[in-house]
Structure formats: C-alpha cells, structure tokens
C-alpha cells in the first residue's frame, strides 16, 4: 500500500470527520497521520478480514483523542466501510471521539485518558513473549502524555524485563493541550531519558515515510531492549494555518477554514 497516499487520505478524513462532528483534536491527528500510515500501510502485520488473527501485530493508540486518525486508517485498510467514518461523533454511532474498541474491528484498546496505553501494551508484550509468540506490540503516544507518571512505571518495567517485542512511538510535536511542551513540563533531554531507563531509542522525522519505516522495522542487530521511536512531528501537519498551533488542538474546521484545509490537502471538500 502506498503510505503517502494513505497518509493523505487519513488527513482528509480527519479534517472532514472533525468538521462533520464539530469536534476537536484535528491538529493531533494531522501530527501523527504519517506514523499511522506507515504502520498500517507497511509495518503492521494485520488481516482486515480477520481482525482477531492471533499472530497480528498489536497496535494501541494511547493518545486516544486522535482516534479519528486510526478509524480512518482502519477503514482505508478495509476493516470496515469508509462511509462509516462520517458517523464520527454522531449520536448513536460507535465512532466516539476517543478511540473505542466496542463494535469497531481492528481497535485493540479503548483509550482517552492518557497514560494507559503503554502499561497495557507492556502487559501484552510480556504475555506474548511468555507464550513464545513472535508478533510485536506498538503503542503510539503523545508527548504531553509523557507527563503521566504511570508511563514511567511502564517504561521501567519494560526495560527491566527486556521486552524487545515492545515499541513505543512518540508523536513528538512539542505542543500539548494549553501550551508548548517546553513551557508546560519539560521533556528534554527526552531521548536520553528513555536511554537512561534502558530503552533502545531511534529518532526520526515523523513525516518522512522512509525514515519512519526504517525506525519502526524490527531492529537489524539483536537487542533485548524495548524500542522507543521518537518521531519529530509538526502539530497540524499538512494544513498551513493549523501547523504548530495550540489553537488547533481544540478548534474544529468549519466554513471557509474547512474548505481551505481540504484544498491544501489535495482537492475539494468531501462534505
């Protein structure tokens, strides 16, 4: 699957879904769209017609507020019909704002409260290794989410138990809910922190698909450490007026803003 094309589709769906749903977090989806596209388009072993295939790679979106991006990727991969995406946020729909597994094939874990995904993914990786199974577990996290202490409990645990089948991916766009990360709770030296905790760290441009594919691939050299991929991203990537803006964590694209966003993403509006 062409991951560039998939990323563009995810972005267009996300803008339309947040437009129709009058919902927030479009900036957070645009930020991670390339990561999700490379995962679902290339890296993850999954079977859309068999969502519970036992040997599938597990993917957890821990930054659950960007659920629209995962719904879009799953629909484009054929887990469910693309036309269901327009029900995002709608009354009576299954596609809640924060990602939910109930009734949505392909979603492993419902999240929305930050700092949960890594522990659950760590448990999955532990059980998987115990049973001698070979698939990997990926957890996509936000940078602001790393404020949550529970993550650091999991980070210690995964390194202590040498869970090499676990991959944490950080969508490091450097902007959190109210202000830049640097002004909220400083994460730097971020990569060093993960290394000090015993993780293998790979940094990559989070919008460069080749770099992402290399970073997310199984490590070439044998390692017994879990991997942290720090993906340097731009919040709101792909829509010029949303990029690097705290505002678009919450603002919903309406009217002319919606039209302009879709035009920048390659064509006229879908809705």
């Amino acid at each position: 699957m062409d991951t560039r094309e998939l990323a563009l589709k995810i972005r267009r769906h996300a803008v339309t879904m947040t437009h129709l749903g009058k919902s927030s977090h479009v900036g957070a989806v645009l930020s991670m769209a390339d990561i999700v596209a490379v995962l679902y388009g290339r890296v993850l072993a999954v079977k859309p017609d068999e969502p519970h295939w036992p040997d599938r790679d597990r993917f957890i979106l821990s930054k659950g507020h960007a659920g629209a991006g995962v719904y879009a990727a799953l629909a484009e991969r054929g887990f469910f019909p693309v036309d269901q995406l327009k029900l995002h946020y709608a009354n009576g729909s299954k596609l809640s704002g924060h990602v939910s597994h109930k009734g949505i094939p392909g979603v492993e874990l419902s999240t929305g409260s930050l700092g949960h995904g890594l522990s659950v993914g760590t448990g999955m990786a532990y059980a998987t290794r115990l049973d001698g199974r070979k698939h990997r577990v990926f957890v996509l996290m936000s940078d602001g989410e790393c404020d949550e202490g529970s993550n650091w409990e999991a980070i210690m645990f995964a390194a202590h138990h040498r869970l090499a089948n676990l991959v944490a991916v950080i969508d490091y766009n450097k902007i959190q809910s109210l202000a830049p990360v640097e002004e909220t709770l400083r994460l730097e030296p971020f990569a060093d922190k993960w290394r000090a905790f015993g993780w293998r760290v790979v940094e990559a441009d989070g919008h460069d698909h080749k770099a992402l594919a290399a970073a997310l691939a199984a490590p070439a050299a044998a390692t017994d450490a879990p991997t942290c991929v720090i993906a340097h991203t731009t919040k709101g990537k792909g829509v010029s007026f949303m990029e690097n803006s705290v505002l678009w964590h919450y603002r919903t694209p309406q009217g002319e803003e919606y039209e302009r966003a879709m035009a920048e993403l390659g064509g006229p509006a879908d809705a």
């Binding site: 492993e108 874990l109 949960h116 890594l118 522990s119 659950v120 993914g121 760590t122 448990g123 999955m124 990786a125 532990y126 059980a127 529970s150 999991a154 645990f157």
Partner: peptide, 8 residues
C-alpha cells in the same frame, strides 16, 4: 494496566 494487557 499490565494485568489488563496480559488478560487481553
């Protein structure tokens, strides 16, 4: 969280 992951 670990327990939930293992249980799943």
């Amino acid at each position: 969280g670990l327990a939930a992951g293992m249980a799943l």
